[in-house]
Design a protein around this nucleic acid. Structure first.
Lengths: 176, 176
DNA sequence: TATTGTTATACTCTATAACTATA
DNA sequence: TATAGTTATAGAGTATAACAATA
């Protein structure tokens, strides 16, 4: 039931059906809730963070969908791309460059190593650290990922417009 | 140690010290890792998602920091703002409008109700649902949150520029 | 039958702390 | 003493599924 049990929680309330297909009770104006899409965001419309967050969720969902066949997520793609362009980097270097926690990178690399995309190779200069490299299989795979990622990027351009996408990249260049 | 234990994980590797303050070994050019900030992002620079993600993280961190004194996070702020502007909304309506899972909204509202900012009030029209309202305390609190959020928004404008912030809001308006 | 609020579970991500082996 | 990689844990956040009350 929708009753009380802990501290909060009272009971029952008002309808406010959303986007109902046909009839919806008795009155045609909706009780005191909202009729559908006219729920105002008030102060949120002036917050860049809100729009950026919703946009980021859309982008990541499209990326994940577009690369679903190869089962690669945005963070995995970014790690492989940076290693591919900078062979021999240490885990700390990759973590700092991409803003990932080094503890988390351990697990990311574990899964990429299990799939034979990346290898941690030893080196003589500092026996504490690993030099990261793409395997032969990893290099081939990354090339395919990049083609799919480019396709995803075209979806972004279609969504917000070619010019807007480019302007956006320029505005946010300092954050990369 | 940095050795093997499960499947992955080999051992030792290459340095690639980042932004080291003074000396860093023997050679002045860094082993085979990177010297500091010149780690190329390769394909990532052309991906809007990467820049947007980094920007979003920066914004949220600034928001959380700026509203730390009142212990309010972005999602809590968005929920209170929407309820404040649309009193009587059901949980489903709020969840759909903000793109939050209804299961997660339950916990969000629990904490806001525990702090006496929001109340779930019963209604006669649909005994399954709750009509959400801000309490008197919630209204006062939200007014303060909005002042702090406006301060945060000024930080954003300082960071990327007033014009750029406005252009960004226009570009992403369809995602709100 | 479908929907609302709720509970529960699992998996991702973030944030820390601590430990080992190195430097 | 500090750093690299690792392990472990706790808290958000996301994604689902299932259930009771109600429509």
């Amino acid at each position: 039931m929708a009753s009380q049990q802990k501290t909060s929680r009272k009971a029952a309330g008002t309808a406010a059906a959303i986007r109902r297909p046909r009839s919806h009770g008795a009155n045609g104006a909706a009780p005191n809730g909202e009729a559908g899409d006219d729920i105002g965001l008030d102060a949120l419309v002036g917050h860049a963070g809100y729009a950026v967050r919703r946009f980021q969720l859309w982008i990541f969902q499209d990326f994940i969908k577009t690369l679903a066949t190869v089962d690669i997520r945005p963070t995995q793609y970014s790690v492989m791309t940076v290693i591919g362009a900078n062979p021999g980097l240490s885990q700390m270097a990759v973590a700092k460059r991409l803003g990932i926690e080094r503890a988390r990178l351990v697990h990311l690399l574990d899964s990429l190593e299990d799939r034979d995309f990346v290898s941690r190779v030893p080196s003589a200069t500092d026996r504490r650290s690993h030099a990261l490299h793409l395997t032969a299989r990893g290099k081939t795979a990354l090339a395919q990922f990049k083609r799919l990622a480019a396709e995803h990027e075209r979806h972004v351009a279609e969504k917000i417009g070619k010019e807007n996408r480019e302007h956006l990249l320029r505005i946010l260049a300092s954050f990369t």
